[in-house]
């Protein structure tokens, strides 16, 4: 799976498990937050990534 802040590019090349990152300069971070808050943002993104990894293709 891919965490990216450039979603259109990932979609264009056919990636199929995608999570939108938190900005190109810190895909899984946030420089404006405190260290703990930032880690929470990262935790949530990784949790979403894990969910995406478990998904099966249900499309016909």
């Amino acid at each position: 799976m891919q965490i990216t802040s450039a979603l259109p590019i990932a979609k264009m090349v056919g990636a199929n498990r995608l999570v939108l990152g938190n900005g190109i300069v810190h895909v899984v971070g946030d420089a404006n937050l405190s260290v703990e808050q930032e880690k929470e943002v990262r935790r949530q993104l990784v949790q979403k990534a894990l969910k995406a990894l478990q998904a099966d293709n249900t499309a016909a």
Binding site: I24, V25, H26, V27, V28, G29, A31, E38, K39, R42, R43, L45, V46, L50
Partner: peptide, 23 residues
């Protein structure tokens, strides 16, 4: 292709190893 200062400060902002270790 991008401003690297934030990842330079903390590379976990790019490769989330800290959270992966927790998990």
């Amino acid at each position: 292709g991008y401003d690297p200062q934030f990842v330079r400060q903390d590379p976990d902002r790019l490769v989330p190893l800290d959270v992966m270790r927790e998990l």
